[in-house]
Write a protein that binds this DNA or RNA. Structure first.
Lengths: 113, 113
DNA sequence: TGTAATATATCGTTTAATGATATATAAGTC
DNA sequence: GACTTATATATCATTAAACGATATATTACA
């Protein structure tokens, strides 16, 4: 395995989560970065270094794959079925993280906006 | 600053999120680990190394503080007001992460359960 | 002609997470 | 009393993740 590339990815970091989510539709790297910024209203942004290292990992873990968009100048990617399944689990996990907080705030009578 | 201790913590990692959440009520380190395992039904667990390094960072960032439980053999901690505010923001951020996924899955007509 | 936007990629460093290990006390049991 | 399990805190050293800086090339457009 090359540098900075592991096959683990049992749980997705926020960076990997957003990249995988944006690849529910095929996209090339640059468009992934833009889509994430747009989707999160500039609150979450990923630079090229984080993006390309994460893409390598997602490819190695077979959570995304190359997608042929007939453009030799750009590389496009798309989430695999395995990637979509993991993404669903990770959405569920984040829902639970929110629920855990809501429970505790509720029990304490504290407002959670 | 010592080893592995930064003052950043603008966004909470999952580990820091759960530790901070469990410290909405005062607890000592060992109890934090148990509480998180229990709360997440064993799906998320933090070992002593991750916990104590994260506690140091949370202390340095003043998101938690020492809490005197009159037991000289154990150190207890509790979330500060600043910590609670950040926690609320981080709950919100995770809600948005879920919403972003729900939007995309809905648009694609894919089931998300 | 230049310069801003698009597009991909890597190096090297910083930050985060964690396995392994050490230490000590308390509680239960054979 | 001796032994084991649970409680409790802590650090070292390694692995994994994130990312600033930088390089390169193309396209758009003023």
């Amino acid at each position: 395995m090359g540098r900075n590339v592991s096959l683990e990815m049992g749980e997705l970091t926020d960076t990997a989560y957003y990249i995988l989510l944006s690849l529910m539709d095929a996209k090339h790297g640059y468009l992934i970065m833009q889509t994430i910024e747009e989707m999160t209203n500039q609150r979450f942004s990923i630079g090229p270094a984080s993006m390309y290292t994460t893409i390598k990992k997602l490819l190695a873990a077979e959570l995304i794959q190359l997608f042929d968009d007939h453009d030799p100048k750009r590389k496009s990617y798309i989430a695999t079925e395995k990637g979509i399944e993991l993404l669903k689990e990770e959405v569920k996990r984040r829902r639970e993280m929110v629920l855990h907080a809501e429970e505790i705030f509720k029990r304490k009578g504290e407002q959670l906006t």
